[in-house]
Amino acid sequence: MAREIYAYKCRKCGHTHYPYRMVCKSCGENEHNEFDQVPLPKRGKLLTWTRAYSLPADFEVPSLGLAIVELENGIRMTGQLRVDDPRMGMDVRGEVEIVRREGYDERYGMVFYEA
């Protein structure tokens, strides 16, 4: 089953948020949970990226690629980046994968690859 990461679309004004917030940033009038879940697109352009070498203690890798990607629908998101030679503006595709293990808990998130 393909996993998804959801954005939250305001039922009143249609503004889409990622990540979730309880009051719409655009119309500001929503009651709690008055949002529709919409899957984030899996394609976008690389807005900016880094390769980080000083990581939290639970990452036992030498370095980690991180990126902010502008998705097809204009929403931006942060994710991990697995591209050998990243260039700003390049096309990337996302996969929902395990991005972190905290004890026995597995955290899923978006990992971007070259499109």
Binding site: T48, M88, V99
Partner: peptide, 22 residues
């Protein structure tokens, strides 16, 4: 952000780095 940033291993230096590149 716990769900949109932290889980990926985002640290303050990495946020600053992505900002710097832009």
């Amino acid at each position: 952000h716990p769900l949109a940033e932290y889980i990926y291993g985002v640290t303050l230096p990495s946020l600053a780095a992505m900002f710097t590149r832009l």
